[in-house]
Amino acid sequence: MDWRMPAETDPHDRTWLAWPSSGYTLGDTPAAAEEARRVWGSVANAVAEFEPVTVVADPDHAAVAARYLSGDVEIRTAPLDDAWVRDTGPSFVIGTEPEGGQRLGAVTWTFNGWGAQDWASWDNDRLLGATIAEWAGAERVDSQLVNEGGAIHVDGEGTVLLTETVQLDPHRNPGIRHDDVEAELARTIGAATAIWLPRGLTRDSERFGTRGHVDLLATFPTPGAVLLHQQNDDAHPDSAISAQLAERLTGAADASGRALEIIELPAPQRLRDAEGFVDYSYVNHLVVNGGVIACGFDDPNDEAAAHILAEAYPGRTVRTIDARALFARGGGIHCITQQQPALPH
């Protein structure tokens, strides 16, 4: 079976989320829990305006989830540690059989809490990919590679973006080499060309980060083009990182041999919060059927970012949701969602 991960812009059958139910994601006060539930619910309900949505909730929290979710959202139950389904769920692929038929597959990466971080737990979440694969009726494509869905972006035509600080992380895959990763990505998601970015954003590289997920950095709005996080303020350390990323992408070619068109997506003007430099990123959006669910930050650049996204995804409605409560917990809208592609007719 030849597996291929479709572009996020291809038609979806549905989007999956997981419901916050414990730990730092939910928070340790009633106000924090309310904030988490409202933002997760807002994202799920917004996506449900465009396509079917299934939310996985811990059995003890399913009734709570139902109070925040519209009647259009399906709820399923499974034990959970956390709520970042982009990373704990499967990456869906489509397989072509020798006789020409196609089937849905689900790559179940090995998950170890973003590199065995001391603040993470994953006894339940490491099993979630297989559970969702079964519910989706997908053939499992098991992988020994420690990886997360937020650590890869594909153009649907054989090109994958990734970062050297994630797949080559010694706490994830000790001793692994670039070619080992590329061979496994070719097997599981059909990646013929890997474009390695040197690192992630500053805050995402600190103690409570992922060590460099690409879905804060860059994505493909269409094959041959890349939306790139651009920090224009030299007072933020990500300014130098943006320059590094632009240099690497400028010299790269995709699986079809094309030089990449770089579309800058300027970062919000706000540089810091109570914890330090922010990693707010408009790149961390979700493309849905007929729409784009975008991150907002109550920032002067929100409107400009929405305009850039509308031009990058013509014909799609851009819906902006305040994502500051998500980023305060370590991620954004793309991080809490996982698309399931529709099989071609």
Rank of each mutant, 00 (worst) to 15 (best):
D123Y: 01
V146T: 12
A120P: 06
T108Y: 00
W122K: 06
E134D: 15
I152L: 15
W109A: 08
D125A: 10
L128S: 08
D118G: 06
D142G: 05
S143C: 09
V146G: 04
E148A: 07
E134R: 15
G150V: 05
G113E: 00
W114M: 02
E134T: 12
D142T: 09
G113P: 03
W122L: 03
I152H: 14
S143W: 07
R126K: 15
F111P: 07
G113Q: 06
N112G: 06
N124W: 04
V107A: 02
G129V: 02
F111D: 08
S143V: 03
G113H: 02
E148G: 13
I152S: 08
S121K: 12
V154W: 00
W135D: 13
D123T: 14
V146I: 05
G158R: 00
S143M: 09
I152E: 12
Q117M: 12
T110C: 07
I152Q: 15
N147K: 01
L127E: 15
A130K: 11
W109H: 03
R140C: 09
G158F: 00
D155N: 09
V141F: 07
G129D: 08
D155V: 01
T159F: 04
L128P: 06
L127W: 05
L145T: 05
H153C: 08
S143N: 10
V141L: 12
R140E: 14
F111Y: 15
E139M: 14
N147W: 10
I152K: 09
A106F: 10
G150Y: 05
H153A: 14
N147A: 13
G137F: 01
G129Q: 07
I132M: 11
W109Y: 03
N124K: 12
T131Q: 12
E148N: 10
L127N: 14
N124D: 11
V107Y: 04
T110L: 01
G158N: 04
A151L: 00
T159E: 08
A106R: 06
V154S: 02
G115F: 07
T108Q: 14
A133G: 15
E157M: 04
D142S: 12
R126W: 00
A116V: 09
L145V: 13
T131N: 10
A138P: 03
